[in-house]
Nucleic acid binder design. Structure first.
Lengths: 343, 343
DNA sequence: GTTTAGCAGTCGAACGAGTCGAGTGCCAGC
DNA sequence: GCTGGCACTCGACTCGTTCGACTGCTAAAC
């Protein structure tokens, strides 16, 4: 049974270990934090903590370090979120200030977050199904190639070139304009998810010459709806991983691999439930993947009035500054929501 | 003076060292490559090579390793480009096969190249000044916000949201359509670089109510012309750096930092002249930057009929397989050119 | 002139022994 | 429940030794 003071001891062990990367011993605890008891007493508490699997000793005779379970306890019950300093708030605001296109904003956000936390920062590019069509544009690049641009109301622009089948008559400007007008009339304001059936209907009403083209456009939009392209991650701060190399016993290789893989991280993001503070934490082995057993992931959600849009988070060694990083993720997520939401 | 055989010796030293990461000694050379002479003779050659600064001994009594200058000699005069295997060619072709939008193609290309070489791969997003305007589109997102989309003939789509000043009258659909028509008439087919003066002229002819909007659009296009956004790099294979960690004596940190910095790499790319084989090499200290003193960069150019578009390359430790990697860069650059050029 | 054998010398890598010190677990007493 | 004391453990560090892979040099051989 872990006592009240036992939890305090756990807290200082986590804090100390995060700060120094040294296993922390009973004597150094009383030296630095003066609990008003002797080292021997602390040792008893530590024995209880170890019994509960909250801390462990790397080898028989050395201080203790937190286990994944210990970090979990710390994060859930012991950590106080350290609010951002005014300077940091200001930095976020000015750095993210100027609105530009979506990719730009996400890129700057993720760089900001990685600097703030000294970790790898990740942001998920918004999922699209909930967004609405603003405009469909088609530009002929050559007699057989067409650039289809789909603009949605969350500021996303998707572009693809499509090949127009040779067997169909080359498309003239007029019928292209006609098709563009029909498409826009039909689709603008609709949810992306609603479009496929509408497009199918439209198929019967257009002149035969345009059918093939319409088919391609339909494909593009359909691809948008369920394509995994929407599940993309933007990343920054990989160099920070090398900086915390010491915290990954084997090597940072599997971590870098997991990051490039993306799939693993996207799954983790999607599985994480945001807690009351709006930031969720997955610690060490909790995140399943073999390569990430020594890493923790913090995830926050950002949203616009249109609904939840995506996750933003940081990845670092389990031995990280949870208090500060949770605050940073939360703050950046909020600013990002504000930035995207004020339209 | 380095003899004919001396150069052969250099070649095998490079090959051996790249393969094994062990300094190579005179005895192992005759054992493995049997020059028909004794180790002592090889030693004399090695002394000459050392005199010329082509190889060096890490410590008094150990084998030799190539210096930057030695690698340079190897690359310029001794390396034979090992052609891609049919399997590799096939992989490139099928992997890059399906044309989609530009970002997509570049992303897949760079991943392909990093897998082929086991190094970090980089591709420079095409520079725009030489491209021509295909279409300008404006979409109103809200009474005071406008999404401006600029489509160019190399398949690039740029998008920005702009704030329309409140003092101007809210823009109605009609004048927006009018402005769109004017802009397209004026700009389509022009080089991006030509547009700013044309836009300045146009300013006088539009109705006063649209001036403010036009100003913003002008800004967006102007930003396109000289913005550094166009100098973007897409990267893949950072995990490969960790794999070759041993080759970076200090740490891979400065290398990762240089990669994230991008500026350094872009400068290097722009300074490198493509040689006759279409691939240029910058070795170790040659590339100036402090962090990249242990790295080599191979760069190839890819182009479309419209002219040189950008660079593609790989970055790895100086101790890398130059023959194979040069071939890979060249092959991928060619396929990329073909992919982008057949419009 | 080039090549070779022989030999002394150098220096890192690997190994083992010994020391040091931080830290623990346990127990008896307050 | 807390504390002081004590024996014990075990990694980190240092030092000295050995081992082996090379080299450079010199004098003789081709």
């Amino acid at each position: 049974m872990v006592s009240e003071r036992g939890l305090e001891v756990l807290r200082v062990i986590v804090q100390d270990y995060v700060e120094s990367r040294e296993p922390v011993g009973s004597k150094s605890i009383v030296d630095r934090y003066g609990f008003g008891v002797s080292p021997a007493t602390i040792r008893n508490d530590m024995a209880a903590l170890e019994e509960d699997g909250l801390i462990a000793a790397p080898h028989t005779s050395s201080g203790r370090i937190p286990t994944d379970k210990g970090y979990r306890m710390f994060v859930d019950h012991l950590a106080e979120i350290r609010p951002m300093t005014p300077a940091q708030r200001h930095a976020i605001q000015t750095f993210l200030g100027e609105g530009a296109d979506l990719d730009d904003v996400l890129g700057r956000t993720v760089r900001m977050l990685s600097q703030l936390t000294n970790q790898v920062a990740l942001v998920q590019v918004p999922v699209l199904p909930r967004s609405r069509v603003r405009h469909v544009e088609m530009v002929r690049l050559s007699p057989t190639r067409l650039l289809v641009v789909l603009i949605t109301d969350n500021g996303h622009v998707d572009q693809r070139t499509v090949e127009v089948p040779h067997e169909s008559a080359p498309l003239d400007d007029e019928s292209l304009a006609d098709l563009r007008a029909r498409l826009n009339t039909l689709l603008v304001g609709r949810l992306l998810a609603e479009t496929p059936p509408l497009l199918a209907e439209l198929g019967d009403t257009v002149p035969p010459g345009s059918r093939a083209v319409l088919q391609r456009v339909t494909d593009v939009i359909g691809a948008q709806v369920d394509d995994r392209r929407q599940d993309r991650l933007v990343m920054a701060g990989a160099a920070n991983l090398a900086r915390t190399e010491k915290d990954f016993p084997g090597s940072i290789l599997p971590v870098l691999e997991a990051i490039e893989e993306q799939v693993v991280l996207l799954r983790l993001f999607s599985e994480m439930e945001l807690d009351s503070r709006g930031v969720s934490v997955s610690i060490g082995r909790e995140n399943g993947s073999l390569g990430l057993g020594e890493a923790s992931i913090l995830a926050g959600g950002y949203r616009s009035p249109a609904g939840a849009l995506g996750h933003i988070g940081v990845l670092g060694p389990t031995r990280m500054d949870y208090s500060g990083n949770i605050a940073a993720v939360r703050a950046v997520a909020r600013y990002l929501s504000k930035l995207l939401g004020d339209d």
